[in-house]
Amino acid sequence: MKSHSNQCYALSTGEGKSYWFLGTLFEVKAAGKKTNGFFSLIEELNPPGEGPPLHVHHNEDEAFYVLEGKVTFQVGEKTLNGKVGSFIFAPRDIPHTYRVEGEAPAKFLTMMMPSKMEQLFIELGTPALERTLPPATLTTDIEKMYKLAEEYNVEILE
C-alpha cells in the first residue's frame, strides 16, 4: 500500500458528493483517492424498514457508527441493536445486513477498510439532486448491481 497522504482536507455537514442508491442517500466524506486507499467513509441516510440484501465483502472490513435512529444489524450469527452512539464492526468474509427500525429514517457513518467499495455506490448510484432520501420513483438497476457486485468481489446472498 501507498504511504499516508500528506494532503489534509475537511468537509462539513452537507459537503461531499452525494448519491441515491437503493432508496438511500450516500454522502461520500472520504474516498480512497483522498486516503491513499486505506479507507472510505460515507454518511448514509436510510429510510424506515429498509436495508441492503444479505451480502459478503471479500476485500473489505466494514464498520458502522449510528448517528440517528435505530438499526438492527445482522453480522454472521449475531443480531446487534444499533442505537445512537452504537458502533458495529463487520469483518470481511462474514455475511451481514441491516434494517432501519421504527418510523424514522436512520443516519449512520459507514467506514470500509481498505477503500474501493464506495466506487460501487458511485457507479450504481444516481447523483443526488438534493440531500434527502431519493424519490420513490427512482429505481436501482438490479442486473447492473449484481454485475458490479461481482466486479467488486461482493456476494449477494438473498
Rank of each mutant, 00 (worst) to 15 (best):
A128T: 04
V75Q: 02
F87D: 01
E43S: 06
E158N: 15
E50S: 11
I94R: 08
M117C: 06
T13W: 14
N153D: 12
L148I: 12
T97A: 13
Y65I: 08
N6W: 10
K144F: 11
L124F: 07
L124E: 05
K29A: 04
K147R: 15
T72W: 03
L25Q: 04
L41N: 00
M117Q: 15
F108I: 07
A31R: 14
E130I: 01
K83L: 13
L133S: 03
I122N: 00
Q74V: 10
T139L: 14
M117W: 12
L129I: 13
P134S: 07
S115W: 01
F39Y: 11
A10Q: 11
G82R: 03
T126L: 03
A106W: 03
F87K: 01
K17Q: 14
G69Y: 01
A30N: 06
L67W: 04
F87N: 07
K17L: 10
E158Q: 06
N153H: 14
D93F: 15
E143R: 06
P91N: 08
I122R: 02
H96Y: 12
T72E: 11
E155D: 15
H58G: 08
G69D: 04
C8N: 14
L45D: 00
M111Q: 12
A149E: 06
M113L: 05
E158H: 09
A90I: 02
P47K: 13
S86E: 00
F89N: 06
F64P: 00
T137P: 01
N81P: 04
E44D: 11
E101T: 02
L45M: 14
K17E: 13
S12R: 14
E101P: 01
T110C: 14
V100Y: 01
N46P: 01
C8K: 14
D93T: 14
G49A: 13
F26P: 02
P134K: 03
F87I: 08
L22D: 01
S18I: 04
G85Q: 05
N153V: 09
A149K: 09
K33W: 05
V28P: 02
A106L: 00
F39W: 00
L124H: 01
M117A: 13
R131F: 08
L148M: 11
L129R: 15
K34Q: 10
E27I: 09
N36M: 09
E150N: 10
A149I: 08
N59L: 05
P53N: 12
F39I: 04
S86V: 00
W20D: 02
L157V: 11
G102T: 09
I142R: 07
M1C: 10
L109T: 02
S18A: 15
L67M: 10
N36V: 11
E27C: 09
L80T: 07
Y9P: 00
M1L: 14
V56G: 08
T72P: 01
D61C: 03
S40P: 02
E101N: 09
E150P: 03
E27H: 05
L133I: 07
D93I: 13
D61G: 00
